[in-house]
């Protein structure tokens, strides 16, 4: 179980995450929702320890993750696999090597630095790629792939880490609708099939509602909602997203044009 206690992260005087507390049951698919700048990314990065919390603790199965150092820290990073909005692959390395990066914490440094990957690790990486129909691209450079393909490679990299929890930071924000579905389905399959916990930042409320078992809503760094997707009423969503509400809540009617702007447009058209 992942427990977050009073987690705070300040950059200067501004708190990106402000006293966040919640816990996540193993095997659940949790969506973190909120406006851009609400602190979702910082929260996930702190769990993986890419960012260091100013206050508070993160516990995983009773172990204080925030206190880890050195090798123990690297092993925790491997156990909490991260998927990024911009994929964060190494563009000039080939796809298979990129996936093998997920094994770095397990393999002795002299082997990985000389690229003498153990045979079973290669097999694991290749199988992970095949699982996402990417095995035929194994020898290609990562920066020659499309965005959707790159994100599938990134998920394969996350999977070969054999993680207990996957942290996905806006995994679909740079993708088109077709690849969005592929990636979200893959995350769902990983979650349901292998029982890996998924903690996923999402901007789109529709996607969050249809994929997640539980939603955590953040605003200005605070956790302001925590519960089943069904409990998230339109009213709460509007408060969460404020002005952006209409962009993220599908099917909501467009508001009538504002009276103040209409004449200006009218005169422009007339002129």
């Amino acid at each position: 179980m992942l427990v977050v206690e009073g987690l705070t992260c300040r950059f200067g005087t501004k708190a990106a995450v402000d006293n966040a507390s919640f816990s996540v049951q193993p095997g659940s698919f949790v969506g973190v929702i909120g406006r851009s700048g609400a602190g979702k990314s910082t929260l996930l990065r702190m769990v993986n320890r890419l960012a260091d919390p100013t206050e508070g603790r993160i516990l995983f199965e009773g172990v204080d993750v925030t206190a880890l150092r050195g090798k123990a820290l690297r092993q925790w990073r491997a156990r909490s696999a991260m998927i990024f909005q911009q994929f964060n692959l190494v563009g000039r390395l080939d796809v298979l090597t990129n996936v093998l990066m997920g094994r770095l914490a397990e393999i002795p440094s002299w082997r990985s630095l000389t690229q003498l990957w153990p045979e079973q690790d290669r097999a694991l990486a290749m199988s992970a790629l095949e699982q996402f129909d990417m095995a035929q691209f194994a020898a290609q450079r990562a920066d020659q792939l499309s965005g959707g393909q790159q994100q599938r490679v990134a998920i394969a990299r996350a999977l070969v880490q054999e993680p207990d929890i996957i942290l996905a930071d806006e995994p679909i924000a740079s993708l088109d609708p077709r690849n969005t579905k592929i990636v979200m389905d893959a995350l769902l399959r990983i979650n349901k099939h292998f029982g890996i916990t998924v903690l996923c930042n999402l901007h789109s409320l529709d996607l969050a509602r249809s994929y997640c078992d539980r939603l955590i809503g953040m605003a200005a760094g605070r956790v302001v909602f925590d519960g089943q997707p069904s409990m998230l009423t339109d009213h709460i969503a509007r408060e969460l997203y404020d002005l952006e509400a209409n962009d993220v809540i599908g099917g909501a009617p467009m508001p009538a044009p504002d009276a103040a702007t209409a004449p200006a447009l009218g005169t422009a058209a007339a002129a």
């Binding site: 690297r74 092993q75 491997a78 190494v90 563009g91 000039r92 090597t97 990066m101 996350a158």
Partner: peptide, 29 residues
């Protein structure tokens, strides 16, 4: 590009790994 290095760090790579796999492929050319 910092993101590529971060990708390696997030998978549990050490500083040496970050330099070897994250930095050098970008910088060598």
């Amino acid at each position: 590009d910092k993101k590529q290095v971060e990708g390696i760090r997030a998978s549990g790579g050490s500083t040496l790994h970050e330099i070897r796999f994250g930095l050098l492929p970008q910088v060598l050319p």
